[in-house]
Design a protein around this nucleic acid. Structure first.
Lengths: 117, 117
DNA sequence: TTACTATTTGCTAATATTACCAAATATAGA
DNA sequence: TCTATATTTGGTAATATTAGCAAATAGTAA
């Protein structure tokens, strides 16, 4: 996403930057990666095997996460290990998961997850 | 986004559903709307005036947020008021904002926002 | 009824995202 | 050096998202 793509976009400070971080999370494969990395660092090859998609696809997803500061990478020999460096994403994902598990009433009743109380 | 678009997508339970909620947030205009609604319900016309974009654009952003259960709507006369029903999104957004405000070191150092501690 | 206002919906062009293949790069070991 | 492995990068086709216009819908009031 481009920053300030045109003048009609509201530019409340940090809005576009925050949207970039959230957009980086907004893909099932990248959510999976975030969850896996929350259990500890993993190399690209491990994630690729778990995901069952092309390694170049995994690499690009990781670069999206890295570009917004959600993960960092670290080279060891031939392998590159990725680490989650923004763990505050996890309680948020759990909150969403709890809300979604409330079956059919989810979309009309106020959120009742722990964070929302 | 389609659910289970093909067989190579990992189907850890709830992954796609969570991605849909996060994707609904992943736009500067919708983040703005979420922030504004966190201060209280607002009608489409109020949001439209604040945003300075076409009312149909605002209406469509609101329908994205509604479809995943982030907001609910309520008709009063000619006007439709929207209410935030998933306030647990706010601490998450604050966390991201704090991380982003840590200037140039953000993308290489572990998150140190309150949630991540 | 007609007129007016608020909102939603249908449509379209512009833009962005995605997955994969193929090629490039980087590192290790023989 | 040559070979093999791990990862990234470039390119491309398919798909998805977006904004705004125009038209449709819904509610109010004369």
């Amino acid at each position: 996403m481009q920053i300030n793509k045109n003048s009609s976009v509201i530019d409340r400070p940090g809005l576009e930057a925050r949207a970039l971080v959230i957009k980086a999370m907004a893909h099932p494969t990248r959510l999976f990666i975030i969850e896996e990395l929350s259990r500890g660092k993993k190399c690209v090859c491990e994630l690729t095997e778990m995901l069952g998609v092309d390694v170049s696809t995994v690499s690009k997803h990781l670069s999206v996460l890295k570009s917004v500061g959600i993960v960092k990478d670290e080279k060891k020999g031939l392998m590159v290990f990725y680490t989650l460096i923004m763990p505050c994403l996890l309680p948020f994902m759990n909150c969403i998961a709890r809300v979604l598990n409330q079956d059919e009433t989810t979309s009309v009743n106020p959120c009742s997850c722990n964070n929302c109380k």
